[in-house]
Design a protein around this nucleic acid. Structure first.
Lengths: 263, 263
DNA sequence: CAGTGGTCTAGACCACTGG
DNA sequence: CAGTGGTCTAGACCACTGC
């Protein structure tokens, strides 16, 4: 960034040619606007599902042309942080009212359209506060010995248990997450994170392997021990690439497959 | 599309407000430009790796402002069909000089940076022209009984056989693809498709499952029968979403993982 | 230095939504 | 109808590349 641009006393410096600062790394105005919007999103100035101010309003606030805020918003929309709706406004993306199915779940039924299965049947097995194991601490940016929340759950589709997940969350931001809260909640877990903890999962990375079901996983998923399963390790990030969740899943793929688009 | 716009006698109709045609589906100018560029790419007017005309030149050709062709090019670049390089020009994307590793290969070594393995060691097992099985014909849009090329190969990393692939290609566009051609070629197979057959693989979809290694695959990959493997079924498309390749791969994941980014 | 893509502006008009 | 995002233009200037 390295710019003096602020929301109270903005001084663009691109239209008047007075950019005196000898910034070695050139940063376009729209990138600075994007960063400001990002901070407003992170600060919760606009909450998931809510509209952000209109383009003209933002242009006035930042003393910038509409085209410039437009380009900033365009990039945020391309990253799925915002959602544009012509005639209505621009809204903060949310996991709550996602068009179809779960936004980060790439598992689809082999036959039928993506959500022919109907909603997943969820069963929380446990929710404990523990000292984070070393690998979990590293993944979540915690110090050794910091407390973390561990959740175990099973997702079933059409009565067939299909996904066994072990979820790790940093203890401090998720203070108050209990088995009761999880059990009583309907809808995607990430929507709960937004509404109850103000944490938006914005992107994620997954590492996938093929593994053999161990006896416990086999029983949870109703398959024979040794059955090949997809091992999906996901790290989910909030704004500004802060890791906020480590999720280890085992997926049955006898009636489902993991779908991916390459380009 | 439903527009009268052509490369010889374009009639924008957006700046003069005289859009008399009662087109039910509105199509922005830049989308029409995008479609024209797409056709030029498909026709081979500009080949992979080559530069396309400059923005001002294209703006003149299409009788449109630079900003409009810019938006068209932006979308094609976002789809990885074009590659912009400031100060140099805009180039047709290619699998030949891909920055690092293979563009569609999502398998990464568990330790070390993405291409710490060095180049893959490739071994072609066979290359036959066969009548396409029903499922292959459906996937490639062939008629039952049409001929197809089947290629079997193994990829090894650091001496460890890791990927066993069965590749199906439509016989007509790939006339002349032989074991010799494949064996003598260096570099990514998709680069060969571009240079020898004028076919650019532009995007792909993959379906992933976990399976147990059958005896033959186990021997080819040097693992015990029953070892869990990733089954990756890929359909690759050329311009305009024409399916051109069906590729069934079995991946060892004892030292590698399939990586995916979600947003 | 000329040529390329990249940024920014200002203004006009269009398409869509909802009161 | 007013307000929103979406398109298009014209022109100025900037950053990067290579001769």
């Amino acid at each position: 960034m390295g710019s003096a641009l602020s929301s109270t006393a903005p001084a663009p410096g691109a239209s008047d040619g007075s950019s005196a600062a000898a910034t070695p790394a050139f940063s376009p105005l729209y990138q600075q606007i994007k960063a400001l919007l990002l901070h407003s999103l992170q600060n919760g100035e606009w909450k998931p599902g809510e509209p952000i101010p209109s383009e003209v309003e933002l242009a006035a606030r930042f003393r910038v042309s509409q085209g410039t805020v437009r380009k900033a918003i365009d990039e945020l929309a391309a990253d799925n942080l915002l959602r544009r709706r012509q005639g209505k406004g621009t809204f903060v993306a949310t996991h709550a009212e996602q068009h179809v199915s779960y936004r980060f779940l790439r598992l689809h039924p082999d036959r039928g359209n993506p959500d022919a299965d109907g909603p997943a049947e969820r069963q929380i097995l446990s929710c404990q506060r523990l000292r984070a194991p070393a690998d979990v601490a590293v993944a979540l940016g915690l110090r050794a010995g910091d407390t973390a929340v561990q959740v175990l759950r099973v997702l079933a589709f059409q009565g067939r248990p299909t996904i066994l997940e072990q979820i790790w969350l940093p203890g401090t931001p998720f203070k108050g997450l209990t088995l009761e809260v999880l059990t009583q909640d309907q809808g995607p877990m990430y929507a709960l994170f937004e509404s109850q903890f103000g944490l938006s999962m914005v992107r994620a990375e997954e590492k996938i392997k093929a593994v053999a079901a161990d006896p416990e996983a086999a029983e949870r998923l109703g398959v024979a021990p040794g059955t090949p399963l997809l091992s999906v390790e996901r790290i989910a990030y909030t704004y500004h690439d802060t890791p906020m969740e480590l999720r280890r899943g085992l997926y049955r793929t006898d009636h489902h497959h993991y779908r991916n688009h390459l380009s």
